[in-house]
């Protein structure tokens, strides 16, 4: 290692070079290890601890939090928590799916605009992407109020009693979630669609392919990289979302994010909260793994 080497124009020994590298890495990595990796390990440890009477942690190793998560409690066996976990996966899945379906026409439309106005249209999609999620959830809160046309229409159709808002409900959660995550799919997808080779589509049309087959064989493979990034960017935060179900779903449509927040807030049961977090993490990694296995060779970013 102490031999002289030439590293991009510099005559230096390997040791010296590595020392300098460590010097550069240390501040950032030290910070990330201290405040990201270490807390992660502590979270795992805490998930095996118990809860004292006043919400303090009791350091006795137990699997109780995990058995509680899959349903064994003091009141016997219930599937409440499992339902919430599965529902979170389902909501994330539906949100991602519908966002993809809505994103394709949106991106095609923008990509076909002349270059001068194209970026203006794109900015229109970027603005909601960067708007604070509390404000966006709150905007849905407002628009589903009983005085406004949507709730009135629903009342007129006898879907809800007159004078009632359209939240809390599953539909409100889906509306909020899709509007929240649609830009997360649309923006990466657009970068793929913008670079798409349309001559392949024309070729498929010349060969009398049906619209469905044109999409499957000429469009989808070309847009897969952007689509993958979009799906991952949506799936992961959607599973842990808690603002939207909290404001628009209430107790009627709880997701795992609310459950975690409850443990760290009102219930002060850090150990159980940690266990749910680890559960969510495992679910997230598992779905990423499934996705990666199906679509090999796709980079995360």
């Amino acid at each position: 290692m102490n031999k002289l080497i030439i590293w991009y124009g510099e005559l230096i020994t390997g040791n010296k070079l590595l020392k300098r590298g460590v010097f550069f890495l240390t501040p950032g990595m030290l910070w990330l290890v201290l405040f990201l990796v270490l807390p992660g390990f502590i979270l795992v440890l805490v998930s095996f601890a118990g809860r004292g009477t006043y919400g303090n942690l009791i350091w006795e190793f137990s699997l109780e939090n995990y058995t509680r998560l899959i349903g064994y409690g003091i009141f016997g066996w219930t599937l409440d928590y499992v339902y919430i976990l599965l529902r979170s996966v389902w909501v994330a899945f539906v949100t991602t799916g519908l966002s993809v379906v809505l994103s394709y026409p949106l991106c095609f439309y923008i990509a076909r605009k002349p270059p001068r106005t194209r970026y203006l249209w794109l900015t229109i999609v970027i603005i909601p992407f960067w708007t604070n999620m509390v404000i966006r959830a709150y905007a849905w809160f407002l628009i589903l109020a009983p005085e406004l046309p949507f709730a009135r229409l629903a009342a007129f159709l006898n879907l809800v009693p007159a004078g009632m808002p359209l939240y809390p409900s599953a539909m409100a959660v889906y509306l909020g979630m899709i509007s929240m995550f649609l830009p997360f799919v649309a923006l990466p997808l657009f970068s793929s669609i913008e670079r798409m080779d349309w001559t392949l589509v024309e070729a498929a049309q010349d060969l009398y392919a049906s619209n469905f087959r044109i999409f499957m064989h000429a469009i989808l493979p070309q847009t897969l990289p952007g689509l993958s990034v979009g799906i991952i960017l949506t799936m992961v935060p959607a599973m842990g979302m808690f603002v939207i179900p909290d404001l628009l779903g209430g107790a009627k449509y709880m997701l795992v994010g609310n459950l975690i927040q409850q443990q760290f807030g009102a219930s002060r049961d850090y150990a159980f909260g940690a266990a749910i977090s680890i559960g969510l993490m495992i679910l997230t990694l598992f779905s990423l793994y499934l996705y990666k296995r199906k679509n090999r060779g796709i980079d995360l970013i």
Binding site: M29, L32, V33, F35, L36, V37, P39, G40, I42, L43, V46, I232, V236, P237, M239, G240, M241, F242, G257, I260, Q261, F264, Y270, G273, A274, S277, L280, M281, T284, L288, L300, I301
Partner: peptide, 19 residues
């Protein structure tokens, strides 16, 4: 390590911070 904050749902990161 660098990709962790990107792939971890923010609520888990927040929980780890609290603990």
């Amino acid at each position: 390590v660098m990709h962790l904050p990107v792939i971890i749902p923010d609520i888990i990161f927040a929980a780890a911070m609290v603990v």
